[in-house]
């Protein structure tokens, strides 16, 4: 019953509602600062620089009021990758040998480089998690649409992309529920999704996909008619229930963070 039960617990965007300073910031501010931080982290190559960046992120976590365990939860699936990055770099970099066993040589330069890459990855993941933890998927969509709007002139379909994201967010739980229902129906008739090797399991999923696709297309058809009946005619002339508002706080946070991250990136 394992795969059936697990579908329920998938949460998208893992947003945690709140009233903190970070929650109240304009999603565009948060998206821009996060982008800047992600790019900035690739330019930092001193431990002092990473320490300062970590301090900045810790301050953000503190102001968001989000329990730190939620941030570390985001790290769990990638812990192997982080460890692997650290090991590969520690053992594969040439330099002053600290320890040797067979063909494995641990070097001082490797340790330093591996450590730095691991920290960079951790900061990247924790930093972007703050964005998704404090911003509802809808606000995130609105923010992205607004930021992409100027790109319309060069052919970026901002509204359409945002509408696609909205509909995906709306329908993922419905489709998961449906998958669960079909799986149970087929299990009741003797289908087996849990035993066998990877190939056999993949093959047992095939009869699941066909009804799922058929129903997804049916839903898409229905939804298109329902949207048209409610006067949907694209992004032109459309208004929003929740208007994004860029406040003084947003301005201060954006300017302050930009200067700090740029300074870190270029001097550290």
């Amino acid at each position: 019953m394992v795969p059936v039960a697990t579908f329920r617990h998938i949460t998208i965007g893992q947003y945690i509602p709140g009233e903190s300073l970070l929650h109240r910031l304009d999603p565009r501010t948060k998206i821009l600062v996060t982008l800047l931080l992600v790019v900035g982290l690739f330019f930092i190559d001193t431990y002092l620089g990473y320490g300062l960046a970590a301090l900045y992120i810790a301050l953000a976590i503190f102001r968001s009021g989000i329990p730190p365990r939620f941030l570390f939860r985001g790290l769990r699936p990638v812990i192997i990758i982080i460890l692997l990055t650290f090991m590969l770099n520690s053992f594969m970099t040439e330099g002053e040998i600290l320890w040797q066993w067979g063909f494995l040589t641990l070097t001082k330069e490797g340790l330093s480089k591996g450590g730095m890459l691991a920290i960079r990855l951790i900061l990247l993941i924790v930093g972007t998690s703050i964005l998704t933890l404090t911003t509802s998927p809808l606000a995130l969509t609105d923010g992205l649409e607004s930021l992409l709007r100027p790109g319309k002139r060069i052919g970026i379909p901002a509204h359409e992309l945002a509408m696609m994201m909205t509909i995906a967010l709306r329908f993922i739980p419905t489709l998961l529920e449906e998958t669960e229902k079909i799986m149970k129906a087929q299990m009741a008739r003797g289908a087996d999704f849990e035993s066998g090797n990877l190939l056999q399991r993949a093959r047992s999923l095939l009869p699941l996909l066909v009804p799922l696709f058929v129903s997804a297309f049916r839903r898409a058809d229905d939804l298109a008619v329902a949207m048209e009946a409610r006067c949907y005619r694209g992004g032109e002339g459309r208004t929003k229930l929740k208007q994004l508002a860029f406040h003084t706080t947003d301005f201060l946070v954006l300017v302050g963070s930009s200067f700090f991250v740029l300074w870190l990136a270029f001097s550290m």
Partner: peptide, 30 residues
């Protein structure tokens, strides 16, 4: 118009955003 399958006519990921969908399409002020 209201259709048979409630799942296939709700567009947005929260109730109020969905109810707002029609008025938004009409271009009404916030």
């Amino acid at each position: 118009m209201v259709f048979q399958n409630p799942d296939n006519q709700i567009v947005a990921a929260t109730v109020e955003e969905d109810v707002a969908f029609g008025p938004e399409n009409l271009g009404l002020p916030t």
